[in-house]
Design a protein around this nucleic acid. Structure first.
Ligand SMILES: Cc1cn([C@H]2C[C@H](O)[C@@H](COP(=O)(O)OP(=O)(O)OP(=O)(O)O)O2)c(=O)[nH]c1=O
Ligand SMILES: [Mg+2]
Length: 693
DNA sequence: GGGGGCAATAGAG
DNA sequence: TTCCACTCTATTGCCCCC
C-alpha cells in the first residue's frame, strides 16, 4: 500500500528542533507536564553543529535510506505475494496462540529514580530539590523534581543544567546502589526465591506459588512487597506491574510509576484489549530505530497494527523477527523461569578530550589494559578474544578484535595485542578507547579463587548464587528470554526460555527480537536489501559510568600533557595512572632509575629506535616531542643476558597542577617544573637502529 | 555447507 | 572553563577455511 505514506511534518516552518529526534523520544514517567517543545528546542540548540550532532544526523540518514528500501519492497509486493505471506503469518499466529499461558502471575518491580533516590536517602537535604546523578558530560538519572524541567537519564549534564539552572549534580557511587539493591533483593527473595534480577533496580518475580499458598492475589502481593522494600531500605519507593507474563509485567510497572502499581488480570480479553492500543515503543526490545522502521516503513505504531499488517511483517522480516513481532501483537512472552547465565565478556572504556597524540593514546590504552586486567583478576577470568573499541573525534565507533590461541588476563598480554590493534589504526584522532575480553576459558575458576572475594562475599550474603550478584561480576540474567532473534534458533529460545545467567541482570523479558529490518547486507555501509534484522534485549549492568565526571567536578586540575601542545587531560587519568606506576616498575624489574638531561638523552637516543608499549615509533617521534617529556630514565643494559644492545627506560608524562596549565597557555614555552604533579610512566624500549625489538 | 572470527547495530539500565 | 557515559547482550552479514 501506498497508503502508508505518513504525513510528516506539515511544512517546514522553521522549527528544526521538531525534527531532531535523536534522543529522548520515548515517553518517560515524571515528564507529564513538561513543555516538550521547549525542551526539544533547547536540546537542539545545545546540540546543533557539534560533532556529536553531525554523527547523529549521519546515522539517521542511514536509517532513512534503509526505510526507503523497505517501502520500495513493500510496494513491489503483488496480491499473490501478500496472500502467501498472510497464510504464513496466520500459521505462526496459530502456533503462538497455542503456547499462550495465562496461569502464571508475574510481577516486575522497578525502583523509582533509583540512583537519585539512594542519594537522597544518604543526604536528606536533597529532598525536594531538582537533582541528577552523574556529571557535566552525562547524567545517569534525575529525580522527579528535575524531570519536571525535562531533565532525564542519559542526557548530558551541560544540557540538563541549561534546562534547569539550579539542578544539583551528585556523583555516582555504585557501592551505595549495590548496597540498597541487595536490600531490595532480600525482600524479593521472600516472594520468589528464583526471582530474576534484571539490573540493580529491577527484578521479575513469579509469584504464582505464593499467591496460591496464601490464597491471595498478585495485587496484594505487589502491595505488600512494595511496602517491604520501602521498609527494608528505609524509604526507597518502587513501582510494580502484575501480569501473566514478563513482557506485560514490564510494561505495567511503568504505568503508575512512581510509587504505584498496575494489575493486568489473567484474562485473555483484558490482555488483548490492553495490548491493542499500546504503542510498540513501550515493549522491551523495541527501541528508537525499530519504532521508526515499523512506523515509517509499515505504518505500524500500536501493537494491534502488528497483527493487522502481519503479512507485511512476514514479508519483510526474518522468521524469528516476525515471530517476535507477532508475539508482541498477541501479548505473549516470558512465562517460564529463565536460567542463569554467566557473563560473556568484560570490558573497560574511557572517554577523554579528543587527541591524535600517539603517546597519549598509548598511555590511555595502557591504563585501560591495566583496569581490565584488574577486573579480570577480581573475577578470576581469562579469555581469548580481545576487542579494541575506538570512538573518533567525530563520534564514529570502530572495533578491532583478535583472538589468540591462549587465554590471557595480564596487563602485559593485553597490551601486547591491544597495542598492535591500536597501531594499525594510526594516525587517528580519538575521544574514547576501550578494551573488551571475551571467549572465556571454559571452566572458569574454580572456586575459591582469589580476588573475587568481594563477589564471593556478595554471593554469600545474598544467598544463593543465582542471580543476584552485583554489579560487576557476573551477571545474572535471567530472564527470559532473551531471545534470539533471528532465525533459527528460535526453537531454542523462543519464548522464554532460556538460559540465564548468573548474576546480575539481564533481561527478562524476553523475547524479543526484532530486528532490524531489513536490511541489508553489508555490514558497512550499504544496505540494500536483504532482510532480516533483529533485535534483542538485554541489559546490562553497567553501572559504572562517568568515570570522568565524577571525580572532580569542578576544578580539575589537570594535567598535562604529554606531548603535544595544548592538551589538557581531564583528570580522569590520574587515579589509574598512579596505580600503574607500581606495576610498570615491577614489570621492568626494579631497574635503577636516574635522571638524564634532555641533551644527554637525545644524544643517546639518536642511535636507537624507540618503541612505546611494544609499538615502534617513527624515527623522529622522540625528538619532535622532547620538550613535552620529563625524561627520567631508568636505563639498563641487558646485553649481558640477551646478547643484544637493548635499553629500557620509563618515560614519564607529568600531571601538572592547574596553574601550570594556565601559565603554559600564556607563555607557551614554559615548561612545567619536574617536581610537581604525578608521574605517569609508559613503557619505552630502545634498541640499536639496526636491531629489532 | 558449517564453523570460527570479525565488524556493525540495536537495545537496556 | 565546561561541550553527549559506561557495561553488557544479542543478531546479522561476510569472509575464510576444511
Ligand atoms: C536509563 C539509564 C539508567 N541508568 C541507571 C540510573 C538509574 O537510576 C538506574 C535505573 O534505571 P531506570 O529504571 O531506567 O530509571 P530510574 O530508576 O532512575 O527512574 P524510573 O524507573 O523511576 O523511571 O540505572 C544509567 O546509568 N544509564 C541509563 O541510560
Ligand atoms: Mg527504575
Amino acid at each position: 500500500m501506498l497508503a502508508m505514506a505518513n504525513t510528516e511534518s506539515s511544512g517546514d516552518t522553521a522549527r528544526p528542533w521538531q525534527c531532531y529526534n535523536t534522543a529522548y523520544t520515548n515517553a518517560k514517567a515524571g515528564m507529564e507536564g513538561v513543555d516538550k517543545e521547549k525542551v526539544q528546542r533547547i536540546v537542539y540548540e545545545m546540540s546543533k553543529g557539534s560533532q556529536y550532532f553531525k554523527n547523529e544526523e549521519r546515522k539517521e540518514a542511514f536509517i532513512r535510506e534503509k526505510i526507503e528500501n523497505m517501502r520500495a519492497r513493500c510496494a513491489k509486493l503483488k496480491p499473490a505475494d501478500l496472500a502467501h505471506y498472510q497464510t504464513v503469518a496466520d500459521k505462526i499466529i496459530l502456533e503462538l496462540e497455542a503456547t499462550r499461558d495465562l496461569s502464571r502471575i508475574w510481577v516486575h518491580v522497578d525502583m523509582d529514580a533509583f540512583y537519585a533516590a539512594v542519594e537522597t536517602l544518604s543526604d536528606p537535604s536533597l529532598k525536594g530539590k531538582p537533582m541528577a546523578v552523574g556529571g557535566m558530560s552525562m547524567i545517569s538519572t534525575a529525580n522527579y523534581e528535575a524531570r519536571r524541567f525535562g531533565v532525564r537519564a542519559a542526557m548530558p549534564g551541560f544540557i540538563a543544567r541549561k534546562l534547569c539552572p539550579e539542578l544539583i549534580f551528585v556523583p555516582t557511587d555504585f557501592k551505595k546502589y549495590t548496597y540498597y539493591s541487595d536490600l531490595t533483593r532480600k525482600v524479593f527473595e521472600k516472594y520468589d526465591p528464583n526471582f530474576v534480577a534484571a539490573s540493580l533496580d529491577e527484578a521479575y518475580l513469579d509469584v504464582t506459588e505464593v499467591c496460591k499458598e496464601r490464597g491471595t492475589t498478585g495485587e496484594e502481593i505487589a502491595r505488600e512487597l512494595r511496602a517491604g522494600v520501602h521498609d527494608e531500605t528505609g524509604g526507597l519507593t518502587c513501582s510494580a506491574g502484575v501480569a501473566p507474563n514478563r513482557l506485560l509485567a514490564k510494561v505495567c510497572s511503568d504505568i503508575n510509576k512512581p510509587n504505584g502499581q498496575f494489575i493486568l488480570p489473567n484474562d485473555r480479553m483484558a490482555v488483548m484489549t490492553f495490548i491493542s492500543s499500546l504503542p510498540v515503543r513501550k515493549i522491551g526490545g523495541i527501541g528508537k530505530v525499530t519504532e521508526h522502521i515499523l512506523r515509517d516503513a509499515l505504518g505500524i505504531s500500536t501493537c494491534e497494527e502488528i497483527l493487522q499488517k502481519s503479512s507485511y511483517i512476514c514479508a519483510l522480516f526474518s522468521h524469528s523477527s516476525a515471530d517476535f513481532f507477532l508475539s508482541v501483537g498477541l501479548a505473549i512472552g516470558g512465562t517460564d523461569t529463565p536460567h542463569v547465565r554467566s557473563r560473556r565478556s568484560i570490558s573497560n572504556e574511557r572517554t577523554f578530550s579528543a587527541t591524535g597524540d600517539e603517546a597519549f593514546l598509548f598511555c590511555k590504552l595502557a591504563d585501560i589494559a591495566e583496569m581490565l586486567s584488574t577486573d579480570l583478576q577480581k573475577e578470576g577470568l581469562r579469555g581469548r578474544t580481545l576487542t579494541l573499541k575506538l570512538k573518533t573525534a567525530s563520534f564514529e565507533v570502530r572495533t578491532r578484535a583478535v583472538t589468540s590461541q591462549k587465554n590471557i588476563c595480564s596487563t602485559e598480554d593485553i597490551m601486547k595485542h591491544a597495542s598492535k590493534l591500536l597501531k594499525a589504526e594510526l594516525p587517528v584522532s580519538l575521544r574514547l578507547i576501550g578494551l573488551r575480553l571475551s571467549h572465556f576459558d571454559e571452566e572458569k575458576v574454580g572456586a575459591p579463587s582469589d580476588p573475587t572475594q568481594k563477589t564471593l562475599t556478595y554471593y554469600m550474603l545474598s544467598g544463593d548464587a543465582l542471580r543476584k550478584n552485583m554489579g560487576d561480576q557476573s551477571s545474572l540474567d535471567l530472564d527470559s528470554t532473551d531471545h534470539c532473534m533471528m532465525h533459527g534458533e528460535e526453537t531454542c529460545l523462543s519464548k522464554d526460555g532460556h538460559q540465564t545467567s548468573s548474576c546480575d541482570y539481564r533481561d527478562p523479558l524476553d523475547e524479543n527480537h526484532l530486528s532490524n529490518l531489513d536490511d541489508s547486507k553489508s555490514t558497512s555501509g550499504n544496505f540494500e536489501e536483504k532482510e532480516e534484522i533483529y533485535e534483542s534485549t538485554s541489559n546490562a549492568n553497567a553501572e559504572k559510568m562517568n568515570a570522568n565526571d565524577n571525580q572532580n567536578e569542578d576544578n580539575v586540575q589537570d594535567v598535562v600533557p604529554l606531548l603535544g601542545p595544548g592538551y589538557s587531560f581531564p583528570d580522569q587519568f590520574e587515579g589509574s595512572s598512579l596505580d600503574r606506576v607500581n606495576s610498570v616498575t615491577k614489570t621492568l624489574g626494579d631497574v635503577a632509575s636516574s635522571s638524564v638531561s634532555q641533551k644527554e638523552f637525545l644524544l643517546w637516543v639518536n642511535d636507537y629506535k624507540c618503541s612505546i608499549c611494544g609499538i615502534e615509533m617513527p624515527p623522529s617521534f622522540v625528538e619532535e616531542r622532547q620538550e613535552h617529556f620529563d625524561f627520567h630514565l631508568a636505563e639498563k643494559l641487558q646485553k649481558e643476558e640477551s646478547g643484544t644492545d637493548f635499553k629500557t627506560c620509563v618515560l614519564k608524562k607529568r600531571n601538572v597542577p592547574k596553574d601550570h596549565i594556565a601559565s603554559q597557555r600564556k607563555h607557551k614555552k614554559q615548561k612545567p617544573s619536574p617536581k610537581e604533579g604525578k608521574h605517569i610512566p609508559i613503557d619505552v624500549f630502545f634498541v640499536k637502529s639496526n636491531q629489532n625489538f
